[in-house]
């Protein structure tokens, strides 16, 4: 029975230039572990989108990634404003990102839909004014 690896990251809301560091670190660690490249690709895209969302929409938060030989489970928890209408937010092209963020190429409205697309399981728990917790699982095998 192989070990389970737990990786934890705090996503800072203050420094936009550091957004994406957590997903990049996870990606490099998965490579070292010898996880299959297509799986790494799915995880890093889904996690990157989630991490960017935490910086743009929530005031940062915590990312926990549990890696086992069977699956990769990512939990992204923030204490942001919550998502008022999940099905609307899930729609491709729908975005509430501010203009200054869009000018960097973000806010195309593909974040949540990409996260869903690249993972085998996704669950969103959200409460207005309290925060959002997104759990995503990508199967390794």
């Amino acid at each position: 029975m192989a070990d389970i690896i737990t990786l934890r990251y705090t996503v800072s809301p203050d420094d936009f230039t550091r957004a994406g560091e957590a997903s990049s670190d996870v990606k490099n660690k998965l490579k070292q572990l010898g996880i299959a490249p297509p799986v790494i690709r799915k995880v890093s895209i889904a996690l990157y989108e989630g991490e960017i969302n935490m910086v743009i929409h929530a005031k940062g938060g915590e990312i926990t990634v549990e890696v086992s030989p069977e699956s990769i489970r990512m939990v992204l928890a923030d204490v942001g404003p919550g998502i008022p209408d999940i099905s609307l937010a899930m729609k491709e092209g729908y975005s509430t990102a501010p203009d200054e963020i869009r000018s960097l190429g973000f806010g195309a409205g593909m974040g949540l839909s990409n996260m869903k697309k690249y993972t085998d399981y996704m669950d969103i728990q959200t409460e207005l004014g309290i925060g959002t917790t997104i759990t995503m699982i990508v199967n390794v095998t």
């Binding site: 192989a2 572990l33 390794v140």
Partner: peptide
């Protein structure tokens, strides 16, 4: 060429990673 893998198997890589 997965030369940077920590171990030869997933189990070995996981244990070495920790």
């Amino acid at each position: 060429e997965p030369v940077f893998n920590l171990g030869d198997t997933l189990a070995e890589s996981f244990s070495r990673f920790n």
